[in-house]
Design a protein around this nucleic acid. Structure first.
Lengths: 153, 153
DNA sequence: CGTGAAAGGGTTCACTC
DNA sequence: GAGTGAACCCTTTCACG
């Protein structure tokens, strides 16, 4: 991937804020003709810099008002242990993010729940049932300060 | 917000996967006429269930290969202390996510960096310079298992 | 990279069931 | 609420300078 110039950067910034902007408007905003802008965007999409377009659904509007951050430790780091855990965690729709980590805990999860009672259900029926888990540590978000879809460019 | 029926759910699922789907295609996919589909989507947007559309930029394509999870403790929980910290953290473009938390640490951050050297720079120039910080704990993602933009509907 | 034009498709009405 | 049909606007995408 060749480095991005100022115009590519401006394109990325624009479509990151508005994924449904038309090519004509985008071109005007970055100071390019529609054809040139379309060519650049095409390259950015085909090269994988733009990996897709998504609608953002507000969790609150769907009545998901709680965000929990959960640290999990497993009984070992064998490949089979990790694979089985990951296959199981992928089945839980409340898990928004899951990272395999270095350090004290093996996994960090971000989980959406409707309320504390809902979280208790998730904890009981999903988290505690995950294979190879030996330690679960939950904490709760009091406020969302930043939530960017990607790095600022 | 009134509860969503099966068609609303199907609409949300579709636009979550493809934010640039045309209303005509969307209508066909959920089994509605274009006009009815447009009306429903309009309601979903105006009521805030759909909070926007955005392009997903691949951090890897921009050469950001590292994800760090950082736990931070402040010297107090006074409103002024939190406000000053949050104002400062918002200025760092590498911070993708920041939550004010209950529990042992005050904040959890998700940070993108190009490599370890880049992360050291961020740690030195940004994190350590944030006001009121008394404790920083960094760990690194070995693998991204799940990263959903929103909850599955 | 910009211009211009052609073609194709999408959105959005008013109206009906 | 949902479907139909048509008009209008806009977008995309060429070939060429």
């Amino acid at each position: 991937m060749q480095p991005l110039d100022a115009i590519d950067t401006a394109i990325l910034r624009a479509i990151q804020q508005n994924g449904r902007i038309s090519n004509a408007d985008l071109a005007q905003r970055v100071g390019l003709s529609p054809s040139a802008c379309s060519r650049r965007l095409d390259i950015l999409e085909k090269s994988g810099v733009v990996s897709g377009y998504y609608a953002r659904i507000s969790p609150k509007a769907l009545d998901y008002r709680m965000i929990a951050i959960v640290h999990i430790s497993l009984s070992g780091q064998f490949a089979k242990t990790l694979a089985e855990f990951e296959a199981a965690v992928k089945l839980c729709p409340n898990v928004l993010v899951c990272y395999l980590m270095s350090g004290e805990y093996d996994y960090i999860l971000r989980i959406a729940a409707k309320d504390l009672e809902d979280y208790e259900r998730i904890h009981r029926d999903w988290l505690s049932a995950l294979p190879h888990v030996v330690k679960i540590n939950s904490s709760f978000a009091l406020r969302e300060v930043i939530d960017r879809p990607s790095i600022g460019v």
